[in-house]
């Protein structure tokens, strides 16, 4: 970063907010903006109307690219141009921008839904060249990359499960699915649910709502680094530790693979203990702490009375 850029960034954002802006930038990328689109949008939002050349100069983006970026942001509806000589650009508020992006995505999904029917209808008119009977279940593998594609696969598996759903994994894996439909899917399955997990004090919140009689705790010796979900006798999603921050998994309907993992699961399940709902006095509110302490004091009093009475009896016996 040049001195001028640093100066502009500090003037515009202030040192204290750099980290927040970095995070906002990263999040906007998840909303479908490129890093440079996000940079331009945030710059306009913070500084107000600017000419293309000023944007190009201050953000150190080549002039031609800055026109492309402004054009694409305008098409997305989150910046607008102000007629004049030279033309200036300004942005809509961040709240409006996010709403516009979300609405556009919703429309796009709706379009895809509508197109699905059309494609399927068209597909029916195309003659088949492959015999469906050749497509035998039991030998398919699929690499799943990213939380969403894994979740979509899990959803299909859990919803179609008829006998059982077996889940093995550490809390840290479940936390990655927090705020998704994952727990709700497990909760509502009609098949028998069995969950083997580390269930640590810090991570158990990720499984809130799943009945405790379906959860067993992995002990120290069984805290392996692998996680998987098995559906009935025929499908499994096996998580891969790829070393990157993105989740990766393998899905397969290989009978031998499913059967091996199922045997392993059953073995660990047999050796593991059910989770009990913990009553942690340190996390309870003050009233309950008080009640707890009061019971302890009452217990002390009961024991003291007992001891006192017995000592008196002993004394009387001595005197006799």
């Amino acid at each position: 970063m040049t001195m001028e850029e640093t100066l502009i960034e500090n003037l515009v954002l202030g040192n204290d907010h750099k980290e927040s802006m970095k995070k906002i930038n990263e999040n906007l990328v998840q909303y479908g903006l490129t890093p440079n689109q996000s940079k331009v949008y945030l710059y306009l939002t913070k500084t107000g109307e600017k000419t293309a050349s000023a944007i190009s100069k201050n953000l150190n983006i080549p002039r031609t690219e800055s026109y492309h970026l402004l054009n694409s942001l305008e098409q997305k509806g989150i910046i607008f141009s102000i007629f004049g000589k030279p033309t200036k650009f300004n942005s809509v508020s961040i709240n409006d921008a996010l709403t516009i992006i979300i609405d556009n995505e919703k429309k796009r999904l709706l379009d895809l839904e509508l197109k699905k029917e059309k494609i399927l209808t068209l597909w029916e008119t195309v003659p088949k060249y492959v015999d469906d009977s050749e497509n035998v279940d039991g030998n398919k593998f699929q690499i799943l990359q990213g939380r969403n594609s894994i979740l979509v696969k899990i959803e299909r598996m859990v919803k179609s499960a008829k006998i059982d759903v077996m889940v093995l994994g550490s809390d840290s894996n479940f936390i990655k699915f927090y705020h998704t439909e994952f727990v709700n899917l497990l909760k509502t399955t009609k098949a028998e649910l069995q969950v083997l997990t580390t269930y640590s004090k810090k991570g158990q919140f990720a499984l809130d709502g799943i009945p405790l009689n379906t959860i067993k705790k992995l002990d120290e010796n069984n805290r392996h680094n692998f996680s998987f979900i098995i559906k009935d006798e025929n499908e499994v999603v096996f998580f891969i530790n790829s070393g990157s921050s993105e989740l990766m998994a393998i899905w397969t309907d290989s009978k031998s693979f499913v059967s091996t993992l199922k045997s392993l699961f059953k073995l660990i399940w047999r050796k593991s203990a059910f989770v009990l709902e913990k009553e942690n006095k340190f996390t309870k509110n003050m009233a309950e702490d008080y009640e707890h302490r009061l019971r302890e004091i009452e217990q002390e009093k009961v024991i003291l009375d007992y001891l006192k009475q017995n000592l008196m009896v002993k004394k009387e016996e001595k005197n006799d």
Binding site: L276, E277, Q299, V302
Partner: peptide
């Protein structure tokens, strides 16, 4: 649910303080 679980596990008894000696 825990009291029920204690029974299933075969725990002898579950008493809440203060308990009579």
């Amino acid at each position: 649910e825990n009291i029920q679980k204690f029974k299933e596990l075969g725990i002898s008894s579950c008493l809440q303080k203060p308990v009579d000696i």
